[in-house]
Every structure is written in C-alpha cells, then in structure tokens.
Design a protein around this nucleic acid. Sequence first.
DNA 1: AGCCTACAATAAATCGTTTCACCAGACGTT
DNA 2: AACGTCTGGTGAAACGATTTATTGTAGGCT
Lengths: 356, 356
Amino acid sequence: MSKPRSPSIKMVADRAGVSVATVSNVLNGKPSVSPDFALRVQDAVRELGYVVDIGASRLRSQKSQLAGVVVPDLTNPMFASFVSTLEHLARVDGFDLVVVSARNNPEEEADRLRNIRSWRPAGLIVIPCDGSFAERLPGGFSAPVVLADRIPDKPGFDLIAVDNSAAAGAIATHLENQGYKDCLVVGSWLSISNVRERWEGVRGAVKRLGVEVLEIGIDDPEGADRLERRLRGRQLPGALFVLDHGSSLLAYRTMAEIGLSAPRDIGFASFDDMEWMRLVAPGITAVRQPVEDMAEQAWALLLRRIRGSAGDPVTRRLRCAIEIRGSTSRSPHQEAGEAPKGGMTCTLQEGRYSPD
Amino acid sequence: MSKPRSPSIKMVADRAGVSVATVSNVLNGKPSVSPDFALRVQDAVRELGYVVDIGASRLRSQKSQLAGVVVPDLTNPMFASFVSTLEHLARVDGFDLVVVSARNNPEEEADRLRNIRSWRPAGLIVIPCDGSFAERLPGGFSAPVVLADRIPDKPGFDLIAVDNSAAAGAIATHLENQGYKDCLVVGSWLSISNVRERWEGVRGAVKRLGVEVLEIGIDDPEGADRLERRLRGRQLPGALFVLDHGSSLLAYRTMAEIGLSAPRDIGFASFDDMEWMRLVAPGITAVRQPVEDMAEQAWALLLRRIRGSAGDPVTRRLRCAIEIRGSTSRSPHQEAGEAPKGGMTCTLQEGRYSPD
DNA sequence: AGCCTACAATAAATCGTTTCACCAGACGTT
DNA sequence: AACGTCTGGTGAAACGATTTATTGTAGGCT
C-alpha cells in the first residue's frame, strides 16, 4: 500500500474533462471561462476535496502569500497577543504566517532568520532580541522587513513602536507628584532599546526625584540576587519602577519574599500592564501599551511595502496610556489594601502628562 | 529595475562550475562527492548567500518538513507556552511550524484547517475548539493528526491530555478536608471535554461536599452576569472552584468587585496555575498542568507517526500537580493575607490524592 | 591489452502549479 | 466568399529543487 497523495490539479482536470489550464483559470477567477465549464470544474474540486498546493503555486507565480514573524519570546503575553492580532489581520488579506520565537537568544534569532528565508516569505515582521539585529539579518534578503517594539542600533528600517520615553516619564512624574523622594528603576538590559528609552524617559522627566538604575538581565539568577540584596539594604528606595514585564514578575515576587508590600513599604510601578496587575490588591500602577494597534500598523505597513510602495523607511510611535492604581498611592485611604477598584486611566496628551 | 530574486541552485552551480545535481548532493550531504568539489560548492553558496527554496524542495522530494499547529487561542498563556515548546522541539528535528489560532471559534477553526492543507504539512497538532472537531477535519486529509488537551466526541485520534478528572477530584477532596460544606463549580462550557471531565472528577470524588455547577461561556457578558448574581445571592457557597483559565480571571475579578476576599469570605481554587496566582496574597490554590510535557509528548508522537509508525490511536494522560495555597485555607494563621510563601506542592500518586 | 568494477559527475525527468502563445470556431463586416 | 476580430479553450514551457539513469574515467585484475 502506497501513501495516498493529495489530489492534484491534473486529477481535477481529468475528472472534469478539461485541461489543467482551465482548472487553474477557474480557481483563480480568471475571466473568459464559460459558466458550464466553471461549474464542472467546481464539482470536480468538491468531489475530490482538492485544495491548491500553495508551494507549487508560489513557485510558478513567484507571488508569495506568506509572511514571517519573529518574536523574542512567545510566552510573553504581550508578544503573544501581538502575534495573535497579526495572524488575524494577515488571514483577512489572504496571507499565512510562519511564526518563530527566538527565545530571547540572539543566536537563535539569527538561525531563525536564516531558516525563514527558505520559505521565501513576501515580508517579515520582527521584534528584535536586541539592538544588533541589523547584523543578523541575512545579507541579500530582498523581502521588506518591518520592525516592531524595539529599535535597532543601525537605522534604515521601517519601525512601529510605542512612545516609551513619554510614558516612562509620565510614571516618573506621577511618582514625583505623589511625593516620593527617590526611585529605583529596574530593567532587564539597557541594550534593549525600549528599556533604554524608558530609562532615559525617566531621567529626562524629573528633577527632584532621585533616580538610580539596576540591570538584572533575563532569567539571570545573579541579577535576581543583585535586586534582592538592593531591596534588603538599609537604604530602601521610596519607589520601584520596573521597565519590562519579565522584570516586573521577578521584582514583585522578590518584594513578597522579603515581606515588602506596596504601597505600604515601597511604591511600585511597572511598564507593561498585565492582567494580574489589576487583580492583586492594591492594583499596580502600570503603562498600558497599545499592542493591538501596534500589530495593526505593522501589518498595514508591511502590506504596503509588499504591494510595492517605495520610499524612505517610516518610523511611527504610538501613544501609551497609564493606569494609576493603588501601588503608588501615598494617600492613606488606599493603604488598607482594599479591593482593586479599577484605578484611574490617563491618556497621555501630546506626549505630556498632566499632574495628578 | 526588476525585483532581485533570491539566488537559485542554478546560479550556485554556475558559479561553482558544476552541475545543479552536484550542488544538491553537497547540500544534502550525499556521499560520493569529492572534497574539492564540495568545497567549491560551499564557497559559492556562501558568496551568493544561497538558501534552499524549501517549497521547491518539498515539491520534488514529496517530503514535507512542516507541521501545522492549531490552537483555540494564542493569548491564553497555557497555549502560548505549548506552542513555544513545540516550536523549539520541532526545530531540533528540522521541522518548521505554521501556527494558527482559531480564536475560540469553531468556524474559524474549520477555515484554518482547510487552509492549512494547502501547505501540505507532514502532520498536524491540534487543540480543538470543541468536541465536534472530527466533523471539521477536511475529508481525505492524509497527514497524521495528534490532538492535545481536549478530547473529540468521536474517538479514533491520537491524543495527549492531562488527567483532568483526578486533578479536579483532588482539589474537591482538599476542599472537603478543609471543612467546606458546599462548592460552586464554574466553567466556560461543559461541551469542552476537559471542562466536562473536571466537573465529573469533582462529582465523583466527594460525597459530603455539596456541589453545583455553573456554565458561563467564553467572553459572554451574560454568563458573567449570572456568576455575579449567584455570588451576590443570599446563599453564598463555601467555596468556588473554577475549571479553566479564562473563567478564573473573570471569577477572581468579580469577587474583588463584589468585595469578597478569599479565603475570608469564600474559598477559591482554580484549574490552570498561572503566574499571578502565586503573586496575589494569599496565593490561589490551583492545579498545575504539565504543559511542556504535553507538548513534548505530542511532538514525539506526531514525529513517530510522520516517520511511518502505524498502529491504533494512542491516548496518553499526564498527571497534574496541585498547588495548595492560602486561598483555600481555613486555618486562621493564613487568613491575615501574609506574603505568599509558595504554598505546598502535591504530586498526585496513582491518580489519588492523599488527604491534607 | 582487454575486461570488469567502482566512483564522480551530469543530463534529464519530475513534482504541481501558472502563464504564455496559440488555435479553432463563431460572428460581423464589407 | 473572403477577411478580420473576438471568445473560450488548450499544449507546453517555465518555476527551483531532487532523483534516476547514464556517462566517462580511473584503477585493479587476469
């Protein structure tokens, strides 16, 4: 018993009693094919359960209906919903997606990028692992590439990101207005552009608030130790502002282990507003990023490039909202750890933050 | 200016001064090609930045190095890490993945399944939306299919799932042992097999504990209303046990809005142990599913089928662990809402749960 | 030398499509 | 009737790879 092959266009043609060219014309909605022939073809297609071989189709027509997506980590909820939105949009335009995760590893990213080329995608959407992305993009890659969320060191790419600096600055201003004197800013790596931009946003926004930065890496036990030692030290900072999701989880857990509670012992704010941040009591003040918008814009831009729109690389920055919740409150009535009541949402106007 | 095409094997052959067949032999590590020719080919490959066209390759060799993955919802962290693990494993075996999300919609799932056929994947791993999956699988689909996490109504598929019944039963027993008198069991849809199995596991495990079930759907405002009304009613149940992640988020939020706190006013336990459940204070008692194991086994099984292992469909059940935390505690010292200290992990022995 | 074997390299067929050039016939015009 | 002009349909050539069959060459053996 030999393996059953999928029915080919030739079988359809035979069964319908027409030529393969006619079948192809019917399937691609070409004009100039008579209604009765079209019907016969459609019947044959249905009876055989025929579906086009998209690989062969692309090979001949040189038109790829595939886009590649590379993200640093699929298990990060933000990237997951980025991909999910992207996939939906792409399908609407008749594109399929091959999604790969670089698992926060530049080498793995380079490998995936090389590998993805062999699919001959029409375009790529990439959230790079780090700034040196440009060096890892295989030379002579001709399909358009749109970067999202993070900026590479070298310019020259289309880019959709959020206004990290303004959003982080707004949080810092909020902390200052709340009366905090100093703030420990924690992030994974400053070599990741958005973390760096957030840190710079903090520094640029405040003058009275004393700020200090701590890099703790990604999944790095030594970084976790450094953070714990810092939080156990005598000079506990007034507030903690964490610049990315992974670090937020770690920091919040570390605080709990030490026995620090926000806002009682220390103020706590985070970039990346995750589901759980409004479930804990009190809720955690955080920056909410417009992930769906980012995906939407990235796809729209890529599609334009695929369709052939030339022109200089575009950079677009989307505005974030900030969610003020109990974890940064210094007014006594919030300290009791009452039920998280949603808090307050602030949209940033013109990149500025209106004081509390 | 015409579009630059990717270099083809022919260009490599020309540049190396050999035939295309030789290039192919070198690239596929065929024996019987002299070292100096191999070297010349490799040089040419490097100079041109050539990568094989995987579509053309598959077309000729009839060997697909692609597997399809269909999940109900990519933004569910459990499925996200399932996919992430899968993707890593597949790459190790030289496979690529095309991942699609059905967005909890059976029709969309059917559409994706049809569409994915045109890629001629070597196999499929599917977490079905609901029990009627079998009817949506396109007829005459010849590649092997491995289902994960959820059982279809009709048997006949390879299946990797967790032992829902035993794990849910263990939670119920735990609640009973803690002295709870009755428990409201909440899940999205009992038509989803694992939710149903969990509910049946609860019913089968306990005799003294009074149980009652409530279906609230997925993203259904009316279901949310029903839950809220039930929790505001006079007869507040002693405990709440939520059977899936989406419902857990909703239930926990609803409790907070009403002003109910666990375990003070009501016991609270959940299937699906998510990051945030040990971050809130007190931590939430939950079933921890072996997602990575599930992905591993699913991939291993699919690979065996792809390689041609015949035989009857296999069903494998993996054992869960349960995390006992403060949210179901009736001993007074935990009520204070102290820092979540990790709680206690229980591995289920032989599917039985040893009492607290 | 003559013959057989083993090895290296190649030419050509093939996979499932799309596309291009062409063809037969119907139709309209003078 | 002779001549263009559509119209609906087909055969065959690509696309970029792998695989099979074939060729040429060198070496070993009698």
